[in-house]
């Protein structure tokens, strides 16, 4: 559908080069990478809004940057990061602007256009508020309307720049699921950039991983995580990617090792683990006991064993408090 050959992107100096990429129909691809590596520039270049520094973008066999704008708009649509500030426009009016490349000089809608608008709003579940002006839509609703507008263009390729940026977690999951559903349902190739590594790993069919060195790694999310590519690209001082659990850990351990046993209390164990990590311990499974050991006795009952003695706790707070006292003693 959309491919690139030896593409170099950037404004004056290259941000990434030798990109040979491919988007396939009905596929959801997430473009991830640290801030400032050129995710937006890549999307804008693929959308024909920026010229490549070198190489070519092909859309169904034709050079995308040579297509007439109107022709391109019928095949490719983009949802950008900036908010559209037109509070008087109703949701439906906004979606109908997506028919721009198809309508006559006055922008009159034919029954065929109305049909496409209706379908786009149905797919995105935006019909409920089609008569509401933009000013009265929440960020999540607004984003769905923007996607409906893009769908009304009936594109083969849909690009989205940070579509989840303003949304809370449930809304992000909902939006990504919606996009995945759209890709399948309308046979559209969907590419979105996101900071949401966790969601991207769970929902994308493939990942495009852009590093600050300007290189791109492409593959299944799991493969990229397993091979350590995700960890390499995202390594930084404040956080590191733990590919055992497929998520970021915020702090590097600063205190000594602690062992934790009592895995049969699943949820308690998981949150105890997180609490210990947050305050800086390096947590190990209880199979190998360390000098400092914590045993989960019940849903909310912990036993702390240190070289200087043992104590029992009914809350995480008291456990952590005792732990910090104990480690201070050790230091002294």
């Amino acid at each position: 559908m959309l491919t690139t050959s030896s593409l170099t992107i950037g404004y004056h100096h290259p941000l990434a080069s030798e990109l040979n990429l491919e988007l396939r129909p009905a596929e959801l691809v997430c473009l991830i990478g640290p801030n400032g590596v050129g995710k937006s520039t890549l999307l804008r270049t693929l959308a024909g809004m920026e010229k490549p520094l070198a190489g070519t973008v092909w859309l169904a066999g034709q050079n995308l940057h040579h297509l007439p704008p109107r022709e391109l708009a019928k095949r490719l649509a983009i949802v950008l990061t900036g908010r559209v500030e037109s509070p008087l426009l109703t949701a439906r009016e906004l979606v109908s602007l997506g028919r721009h490349p198809y309508t006559d000089w006055l922008g009159r809608l034919t029954p065929r256009d109305e049909e496409a608008i209706q379908r786009a709003m149905q797919l995105t579940d935006t019909l409920r508020f089609s008569a509401r002006p933009l000013a009265q839509l929440s960020d999540g609703e607004r984003q769905k309307v923007m996607i409906a507008r893009a769908l009304a263009q009936e594109p083969g390729v849909l690009l989205l720049d940070e579509p989840t940026a303003f949304l809370d977690l449930p809304r992000r999951v909902e939006l990504l699921q919606l996009l995945r559903h759209l890709a399948r349902e309308t046979h559209t190739a969907v590419l979105l950039s996101t900071h949401d590594l966790d969601l991207a790993l769970r929902l994308a069919d493939r990942l495009w991983l852009l590093s600050s060195a300007g290189t791109m790694e492409v593959g299944l999310p799991e493969e990229l995580a397993l091979g350590g590519a995700v960890a390499r690209v995202f390594q930084s001082e404040g956080a590191y990617f733990d590919h055992a659990i497929g998520a970021f850990r915020v702090h590097q351990p600063v205190s000594g090792p602690v062992s934790l046993s009592g895995g049969q209390y699943g949820v308690t164990a998981a949150w105890t683990w997180r609490a210990l990590e947050r305050v800086g311990y390096q947590v190990h499974n209880g199979s190998s006991r360390h000098a400092v050991h914590i045993e989960i006795l019940a849903e909310s009952r912990w036993r702390l064993l240190t070289p200087s003695g043992q104590s029992e706790h009914a809350s995480l707070q008291s456990l952590l408090h005792q732990l910090s006292c104990a480690s201070h003693e050790n230091l002294l």
Binding site: M49, P69, K74, I78, S86, H100, P101, W105, Q153
Partner: peptide, 23 residues
């Protein structure tokens, strides 16, 4: 009068107008 449609597209900003095929 002939600019009515482009004006509507421009409500979304220059970038979106361009992505809708407007010169």
């Amino acid at each position: 009068l002939t600019m009515v449609k482009p004006l509507n597209a421009l409500l979304l900003g220059d970038d979106y107008a361009r992505s809708l095929g407007l010169n």
